[in-house]
Computed example of a mutant assay.
Amino acid sequence: MQSDQFERQQQAAEAQWHREQRVAELNRRRDGYMQVNASFRRYRTHLMNFLWTVHKGAVTPDAREVVEDARRDHHSVFAEAQMIASAAVLIELDGMTTALSEVYRRIMCLEEGNPDQDGSFNEIRTDFVRLWERWERMRAVMRADIGLGSDAGAPSAIEP
């Protein structure tokens, strides 16, 4: 009888440990997703501002450094997110990073006076609309991954 009680206590303790691990993992992903989301937004905003600076012909070393700082921050936060993201979120992160890198490249080519054939200011500006749409998809996948999908009655990611 005492061994049965001990076994039940062990099982309860193990179940509690597993719940705590799921909650801790969910918190790590949530925090990482918040950081990468903020980093993507910051980088996108600085790229957009830099595009306008290029368009006005007012590029300075300081303006370029702001973009490069945002880019470095994005790469650092993205690297951290790669270690905690689910497979579905990682696909979105990779796609968003690729899209941002392409917009960065197109803006730099325009700034250097060697734009892509479809790399005018207005054409690059439309890239930001696509980035926003992609960001909304990425954010939705992140939210779903941590149990915050669009359905109010959706089960929590920390339920057993």
Score class of each variant (00 low, 15 high):
E65G: 10
Q5M: 09
A13L: 07
V141I: 08
A99P: 02
G57A: 01
D127F: 10
R42C: 07
A87N: 14
A12P: 01
R30L: 08
E68D: 10
G153I: 04
G119P: 03
D145N: 06
A70W: 01
M48P: 00
R19I: 03
R41C: 09
A140W: 02
S150C: 05
R143V: 02
R125E: 14
Y43K: 08
A85Q: 01
A144M: 07
E92P: 02
V141W: 08
F50V: 05
Q9K: 09
V77N: 03
H74S: 07
L47R: 04
Q21A: 11
D145C: 05
E25L: 03
R19A: 11
A87E: 15
D94G: 13
N37M: 12
Q11A: 03
A79W: 00
D4T: 01
Q11N: 06
E80Q: 09
I84E: 00
V54T: 05
Q2S: 11
A12S: 09
R64Y: 08
A81Y: 01
P160M: 10
Y104Q: 10
Y33M: 01
Y104M: 12
W52F: 14
D62S: 11
A70L: 03
N114E: 14
Q117K: 13
Q9L: 11
M1K: 06
M34C: 10
M142H: 00
R105V: 11
N49P: 04
A152I: 12
Q2I: 07
L51D: 04
G32C: 01
A70Y: 05
V141T: 11
V59R: 08
Q5N: 09
M34L: 15
N114L: 15
Q5G: 01
S3E: 10
Y43H: 12
A81G: 01
E14M: 08
L131S: 02
N37Y: 12
P61K: 06
F40R: 09
G113Y: 05
E65L: 13
R134F: 06
T97I: 04
W132T: 14
D116I: 06
F121I: 07
A99L: 12
V66Q: 13
R143D: 13
R71L: 08
I107N: 02
S150M: 10
T98I: 14
Q11P: 00
Q11Y: 00
W17T: 07
A15G: 00
A12R: 08
V77R: 03
A154Y: 04
D62M: 09
R8Q: 07
D73S: 14
R134G: 11
V23P: 03
H46G: 09
H75D: 14
Y33T: 01
G95A: 11
D73G: 11
P155L: 13
N114M: 14
Q10N: 10
A79H: 05
G149Q: 04
R143K: 14
S101I: 05
E111Q: 15
I91G: 07
R130Q: 14
D73M: 13
